[in-house]
Structure formats: C-alpha cells, structure tokens
Design a protein around this nucleic acid. Structure first.
Lengths: 177, 177
DNA sequence: TATTGTTATACTCTATAACTATA
DNA sequence: TATAGTTATAGAGTATAACAATA
C-alpha cells in the first residue's frame, strides 16, 4: 500500500484518450509527398462516424472536468461515486456498482481509496450481514459540496463551448437513452 | 512477445466503461431501507451533467462497435488507424499520432500488432531516414473494406437507436467542435 | 446454492522518461 | 540541438476467476 495524502494522486486522474484526435482544427494539407509533423491528416471514413466525434467530446469533457476539480483531487469516477452515495445513503456496494456500471472488484479499490481519505464510511448493514452500508463522512459531504461547485463551473464552460441551444439539445437527446 | 494469430485477441478489444452506468432505464425505486441489488439508485447531481450522459453513450457506442466488428477482430482504435493510413498513404507515425491523438509509444505497439497481422507496412521514407512511410497491405485494404461495411451497419444501428433527427443534430453539433 | 465483498491475475491504455539514429 | 521511432516503467481501468462469510 502506498502513503495517503493529497500529494500522491498525481497519476490518479487522467482522462482516457485512446485513439481519437484531440485537435480537430481543419489544418493545412501539404501535397502528399511531404507533410509537416503537426499537420492533421484526412480522417477518411472516420469522418462519417458519430462514435468518433462522441469519443472526442468525451475526452475533452473528462480532461476539463479533471482540470477543474484538480484542487480537490476528485476524478470523474470518484465524483460519480460520491454523488450516488450521497443521494442514496446506506446503499450497498453491489447497488452502487449496478447504478454506475462499475465492476465489484474495481469498486472495492475505488472505495478503499475514498475511505483512506476519510471521505466515505463502510458501516455494517443491519439487515444483511454480507453487505456494507455506504455513506459519506462529514468531510466527504463537505468535499462533495465543493466538488459540486467546481463541477458546475466545468458544466458552465461546457455549455459555453457548445453553445446554449446545442447544449440543451444534446442533454435532452442523451437523457432519453 | 506473445504468439501471433487470430486466436489471441480475445482481450484486445474492450470498451472502456469506467465509472458510468450502462443501464439507463428508469428503474423502480423501493423505499430507502431495503433496495434490490439490481435496482438503479438516484444519480444525484450527476443527473445535471452532460459529461455523464456523453460517457454513457460513448461506452455504448464502443461496445456496439466492438461487437459488430468482432468477426474481424478490429477495435475502434485499430479501425481509426487503418482508416487514416488508408486516407493518407505514406504518412509518418508522428503524423498519424497527431491526427488521432495517440501517444507515440502506444502507436508503436498498436502498429506492431497490425504489422504482425500483415495489415500494414512500414516502409523507409525516401526523404527522411528517421521516418517510416505507413501504408496498408493488400490484405489491410481488404480488411478495411470489410470493416467499413460492418462499421456502416453499426452506424445504422446507432442512428436507429438515437432516432434520425437527433442523430443528424448530434452529428452536426459535434462536427463543429 | 446464490450473493456480497474481497483478493489476485492478465491485459489495455495513459503518461513519462530514456535511449538510438537520424537530421 | 531537435525530431522519429523505440523500449521500459508505473498507474488506472477492464474482465475473470476464485475465495470466505453470509444468506
């Protein structure tokens, strides 16, 4: 096990960015023989695939979220866990995992870290000896409130980036799924 | 090094699904004291964050893409690499990496695998001794064509899932970024 | 038997650093 | 010195299997 404390989470919060361009600018395209290293090439059939653009936006959003919440060292996954525990005090790990589609095994390690930081507690469940009843500590509640404020800042930036109407359209469309 | 061959790529194509619910159905919510394990809990502040829904959609899209292209064992990242190489024959690894925002180091391993499968070639660059000129092999071209056909099937399914109008709206909004 | 939480293993992906060979 | 490609390492995330305790 490694030491706890705010200084050890440097690599704990990276946005996954596998395989999709971050920079979408329409770049200069020199003749095929000689391209500059920074030049963006033709996307080919990728250009017709929604998944490619969704992935790009998702990466941007996560990176911005991580950047915005970096003073608190709260990753998107950690924020989602704290949010759901706060909204459903006493729920079990299985329920939390089902809600957020996090594997049991991964959730254990995720919660271990949050527990080490004294943000959450695992209480014995009164009804079922196998379960833990999860809840935020007072510190966890304070941290979540601060995180929510920063997350709102992030959200405002996202809305500004997309434009107000597209933002609302996107939110409405995605919520239906 | 591990053995090559089509039978070893079983774990090579997983959609990242870190921290966001796959199942978005509006589930029954029993009284707080006793929840069923499968029940979906209240999302809390997560419900107001576009990033959460984008992440959910992105995971769904990747999983569907992987499922659809599983006969060819082509992951989303591999598809994007093959597409860009095909559309920009002779480009260097640096250019490819810049276009798709893939780290140099990761790209090396990605290309190694594709080269082992005889889908791509690394030719010496005529102009610059440090660079490789990338291109698809005939096998690679054939595979990409098949992959594009399957990817179109995937895309049609995605359009059907979202609805035609939201699909077009989404595509238009995301392309602007 | 099934479920909950846990540990362990293997692989992918991300982020760095360092190395080589070329420029 | 800078860049292109490579290798290596460490951490996060994913998928699986196995296990103990409890139901």
């Amino acid at each position: 096990m490694q030491k706890a404390g705010p200084s050890r989470a440097t690599t704990a919060m990276r946005a996954s960015s596998g395989g999709v361009a971050e920079d979408g600018a329409s770049a200069e395209k020199p003749a095929a023989g000689r391209r500059r290293a920074g030049a963006v090439s033709d996307l080919g059939p990728l250009d017709g695939h929604l998944g490619y653009f969704i992935r790009r936006l998702q990466i941007w959003v996560f990176q911005d979220f991580i950047r915005t919440l970096s003073p608190l060292e709260i990753s998107p996954a950690q924020f989602s866990v704290l949010s759901v525990i706060n909204a459903n005090e006493g729920l079990s790990q299985a329920e939390l995992g089902n809600t957020l589609a996090i594997e049991r095994a991964r959730l254990v390690r995720l919660l271990n870290r949050l527990q080490k930081r004294r943000l959450i507690e695992r209480l014995p469940s009164s009804a079922d000896g196998r379960r833990h009843a999860l809840r935020l500590t007072p510190t966890g509640q304070t941290t979540l409130k601060q995180a929510m404020a920063l997350a709102d800042t992030h959200e405002a930036g996202l809305r500004a980036k997309l434009g107000d109407a597209p933002y609302r359209a996107l939110m409405e469309a995605l919520r239906k799924l």
